[in-house]
């Protein structure tokens, strides 16, 4: 291959990437805007324009747009971004295309942590207990997965351990809700297992937002190390990558973002799985680029899913996690069919 053609290909690659990021950023902005315009009440774009022109517009429209839909859209952006980012980081680090916070039990464990703070009354004592509980659950789950099915464990081990951990955490969540004399236990269980963004407020955003952003910051510096890791651990080490540092940054980053996101939005599966897979072909399989692309893609997909749950069912709102699972599960099956060969 001549140098000029390699340069040419590099330039073409860069060009494709800027198109990809342009499309993703546009998608996120558009989905965010639509998220503000869609809801069970009639408030829509006319009210939004009126509000932008004159802040003292009708109080109902103002409250609906600012206090109900804005925090919901912002949370959709943060939660989705966390799922995409964590999915790409875990897949890169474990070098396993099936790693995902939902599938490997991180989300379910974060739910458990959050439920425990709620039902022991800890969350009533100080508000930060809720996201901290979610983060603690997520940290524990990442460590358990690391021990059970680290890079050497292979796909089958990872998935089986993930199923076990997810089921166990879900069972403990149900147990905690069963033991608490809670008249709404069944509904709460459904929420923690299926996730939802309905009727969230700025309080939830203030609780989870800072932790999520810290998690993003940690995960986004992993790009170079993950690129090096594609060559194998030994090679990465000779390139000066400190694998212990990579591991602890990853664990903390995933736990902060997924733990805090789950503590306010419940467990939402498959976004972290689907998004990196959809985008991988556009970034030339470079984990570093995939990280940022997946964050944007995750936000976009979650916002679209959250818009859909408001549009699809006119009565009781569909749970967000139901929709992501309905789209994600067939995709997951497809992946399993494709990777079947690696399991022997």
């Amino acid at each position: 291959m001549s140098i000029s053609s390699a340069e040419h290909r590099g330039a073409e690659h860069g060009h494709r990437q800027s198109i990809l990021f342009g499309v993703l950023i546009f998608g996120v902005l558009a989905a965010f805007l639509v998220s503000l315009l869609v809801g069970p009440s009639k408030v829509g774009w006319t009210e939004l324009i009126a509000l932008l022109a004159d802040p003292d517009v009708a109080p109902a429209a103002k409250q609906i747009l600012i206090e109900i839909r804005t925090p919901r859209a912002l949370l959709g952006f943060l939660v989705g971004g966390s799922l995409g980012l964590a999915g790409a980081a875990l897949q890169g680090y474990l070098r396993n295309p099936l790693a995902e916070p939902g599938l490997i039990g991180v989300s379910a464990s974060a739910s458990l942590g959050a439920v425990l703070t709620l039902h022991t009354g800890l969350a009533g004592l100080f508000a930060l207990a809720l996201p901290l509980g979610g983060i603690a659950g997520a940290i524990l789950a990442v460590f358990v997965m690391q021990a059970l099915a680290g890079a050497a464990g292979g796909t089958l081990r990872l998935i089986l351990a993930g199923i076990a951990l997810s089921s166990f955490a879900s069972a403990l969540t149900s147990l905690a809700l069963n033991l608490a004399p809670d008249p709404f236990a069944a509904m709460e269980m459904m929420f923690w297992m299926m996730g939802s963004l309905s009727d969230r407020s700025f309080e939830h955003l203030e609780l989870a937002g800072p932790f999520i952003l810290c998690g993003w910051a940690l995960l986004s510096v992993l790009g170079r190390s993950l690129d090096a890791l594609t060559l194998g651990e030994d090679t990465a080490r000779t390139l000066g990558i400190d694998l212990n540092w990579v591991r602890s940054t990853l664990v903390l980053g995933v736990a902060l973002s997924i733990g805090a996101a789950t503590a306010v939005a419940g467990s939402i599966s498959f976004v972290g799985l689907v998004v990196p897979h959809l985008l991988r072909r556009f970034v030339g399989s470079r984990p570093s680029t995939l990280l940022y692309a997946s964050a944007l893609g995750g936000s976009c997909l979650t916002l679209i899913a959250d818009i859909s749950v408001r549009l699809i069912a006119p009565g009781p709102e569909l749970k967000l996690g139901v929709l992501t699972a309905m789209v994600g599960a067939p995709f997951f099956l497809l992946l399993i069919m494709q990777t079947r060969g690696d399991w022997q």
């Binding site: 709620l118 039902h119 969350a123 608490a180 004399p181 809670d182 008249p183 709404f184």
Partner: peptide, 9 residues
């Protein structure tokens, strides 16, 4: 009945 501020209900 078991009123907790954080309960989703």
């Amino acid at each position: 009945l078991h009123a907790q501020r954080g309960l989703l209900a």
